[in-house]
Amino acid sequence: MSVTDQKPIPKRPSSFWSYANPVKFLAFSERVMPALWWLAGICLLVGLVWGFFFTPDDFRQGSTVKIIYLHVPSALMAINAWFMMLVASLIWIIRRHHVSALAAKAAAPVGVVMTVIALVTGAIWGQPMWGTWWAWDPRLTSFLILFLFYLGYIALWEAIEDPDTAADLTSVLCLVGSVFAVLSRYAVNFWNQGLHQGASLSLDKEENVADVFYFPLLVAIAGFVLLFLVLVLYRTGTEIRLRRTRALMAREART
């Protein structure tokens, strides 16, 4: 049988797990990142400009309602970034894929910035509406603890020299911190006391904000989600390169 008679080997569809290969992950992220940067920028620009310039004041909250376009998306991402880290940590614990551990590490600084934005904009919004910058309200307090968990998570990665041990310990910390991520989301449902309102976005139509605020808010949320995604892809690539550099330097030092 000649070479030309041979049937071509069918190309296997690449599974999700194939991206655990750092080379494949880098190739994929380099391919999709330009489009993601653009989409994130466009959604953020449209959502924030629409919300800031083209929506009316709220009849109770006045113009402070415009803070919603920053506060809600950042708070949403602060919680969901931790859940993304949780999934990546579980993948590390169960399947020992280094890229997943590095993705969790890469997401933490993005999550901490989102948490700070949510806390700062919440305090600025709370001052004129509640008459105080801060209250030991269930949602605010669980959010503050989530922020401290983020700091602890980042500090733990930096404190441990062996990357596998660091990934193991930070994964356990991530599992524990998930309790506060859940509390941040549902604290207002568990406890009735507290100043913070219920969900701004909900499947329950009655609970939602009015449509005039809702649609620009959705675009702003899409912008924050895309920005988070592209930053995590970029930062994971950076972590892969840093690890490869360290490995090559160690090999060079041995020879």
Binding site: T64, K66, I67, I117, T121, Q127
Partner: peptide
Amino acid sequence: SVLSSYAA
């Protein structure tokens, strides 16, 4: 309040 939120 609004402008400082956006600036921060």
